[in-house]
């Protein structure tokens, strides 16, 4: 492996129903079709050196997914960006590629910005629920995991939640109807707090229950900027020509 390429890509529209396993198969095949000289692990059963950082859950769209490809000969990132994007199915779209120059990609992805569209929800009730949620120290929620039902705090990881109302474009809803939108910045912790866990928390603290399932999109990921309370660009170091 002579070079590592860091890729930001989007998962859009109906492709939001892909799982992280679906995406890894699609990426491996796209890399082969695009004839990108991916490096392989050594050993009995060689695997392409592609690593994925914190994939969004199945059903959640994203404008900020990240992966890293190790290649066996130097490549022009712009060329790889064009080739890989052309080779991936529409809806898996390459947004940015840089050559890795700094520490682990996963370590830089400290938090996410999530947008939840809640068609049919009451904006006043949403505001009130968010207030009560933010006022709490801990909000214990439950989620069914592979290891069974698990209880954890959904409050501490949430940096901020903002409520707004916009015209609806959500699947299955009347177009033009006002729709409640939650925009939240959530730190990546263990166990991971996902947008639906926060929604569960809103229900537990204030009885807030939207009438239909939310449409969720991850808007950004990156290191948490303490002054803005928002994620910075995880490619900052690469762009400023920073050290290794």
């Amino acid at each position: 492996m002579v070079q590592r390429l860091r890729v930001r890509y989007a998962k859009r529209g109906r492709l939001r129903f892909t799982s992280h396993r679906d995406i890894s198969r699609a990426v491996e095949r796209a890399v082969r079709r695009a004839e990108i000289p991916v490096a392989f692990s050594a050993g009995f059963s060689p695997h392409p050196k592609i690593s994925y950082a914190g994939a969004a859950p199945t059903g959640v769209a994203s404008e900020a997914e990240y992966l890293e490809i190790g290649v066996s000969r130097p490549c022009d990132p712009d060329q790889v960006r064009a080739d890989l994007d052309a080779s991936l199915p529409p809806g898996l779209d390459v947004l940015d590629i840089v050559e890795a120059r700094s520490g682990s990609l996963a370590d830089k992805l400290e938090c996410s910005v999530w947008e939840l569209r809640l068609p049919g929800a009451d904006p006043v009730a949403a505001e009130q629920a968010v207030k009560e949620f933010e006022a709490a120290d801990r909000v214990e929620v439950e989620r069914l995991t592979k290891k069974g039902m698990r209880q954890f705090d959904a409050r501490q990881a949430v940096r901020s939640v903002a409520v707004s109302v916009r015209a609806d474009t959500t699947a299955g809803q009347e177009p033009g109807q006002p729709c409640v939108i939650l925009r939240m910045v959530v730190r990546h912790e263990t166990p991971a707090v996902r947008p639906d866990d926060v929604l569960m928390g809103l229900r537990l603290v204030a009885g807030f229950a939207p009438p239909s399932s939310p449409e969720v999109t991850r808007l950004a990921q990156g290191p948490l900027d303490a002054t803005t309370g928002e994620p910075a660009d995880p490619f900052d170091a690469e762009r400023s020509g920073g050290d290794l």
Binding site: R14, L15, F17, R29, T58, G172
Partner: peptide
Amino acid sequence: LFSRLEPLLPKVQKPIQYVGGEL
């Protein structure tokens, strides 16, 4: 029928199998 199918997909197992768009 996709706009009517789409709201059902978050509620089912492996929804990707119903969306098409294969290479």
